[in-house]
């Protein structure tokens, strides 16, 4: 499945998804509140590097993550240098980057199915406000199932467009794609009903 998960067997991978999410959330929040100084930038960078090392993800993975957010770095740093002094510019950019990289550790080390379960458990307290955690988890699971189906439908629509020599414009693509998607939704709704979802 298309996912950011990196298989592994380290302690970070084995840690339960819920608590892991909570700890990383606190860590990210702490980093986000650092001041705009070189010292803070150094702390943020150190925490991140240490985080990837002690969890066994490694520096190679850290590098891969940095490459994947390179545009965020370029745009953030560019804007910062334009409007601010050099020290806060660099400090702010590394703080933002550290927060993103630390938060990414969650999805790198936890399977979507496990996160989904943790999510459902985490929603239990909201049941008294009328939120049905099982139903929320169902919608998410159906959406996960549907993404690859729609990718295939989308490529079908594009091929049909090419076959007819139609242009590659956004509107010419979106209307037929939207209609086949909505038709798929109707079929899916019927299947859900038939399989016992009221």
């Amino acid at each position: 499945m298309l996912t950011l998960y990196r298989p592994g067997t380290g302690w970070m991978h084995r840690a339960p998804a819920g608590p892991k999410a909570f700890v990383l959330l606190v860590l990210v929040l702490a980093v986000s509140l650092l001041p705009s100084t070189y010292l803070a930038a150094g702390i943020a960078a150190t925490v991140t590097v240490l985080g990837y090392l002690v969890t066994g993800l490694g520096l190679r993975e850290l590098g891969r993550q940095i490459v994947s957010v390179r545009w965020v770095i370029v745009i953030t740093l560019g804007a910062q240098l334009l409007f601010l002094q050099t020290e806060p510019a660099i400090a702010n950019t590394s703080r933002v980057l550290a927060a993103i990289l630390l938060a990414a550790m969650l999805v790198l080390t936890a399977r979507v199915a496990d996160l989904l379960d943790a999510f459902e458990r985490g929603l239990q307290p909201f049941a008294r406000f009328g939120v049905d955690p099982a139903r929320v988890a169902l919608v998410l699971a159906v959406a996960i199932t549907t993404v690859p189906v729609l990718i295939r439908l989308a490529s079908g629509v594009r091929e049909a467009q090419k076959a007819r020599g139609a242009g590659g414009g956004l509107r010419a693509f979106v209307i037929p794609f939207l209609v086949v998607s909505l038709k798929h939704a109707d079929d899916l709704g019927e299947a859900l009903t038939a399989r016992g979802v009221a």
Partner: peptide, 8 residues
Amino acid sequence: DAQIIMPT
């Protein structure tokens, strides 16, 4: 395609 509901 339209009958499969869960990811796996």
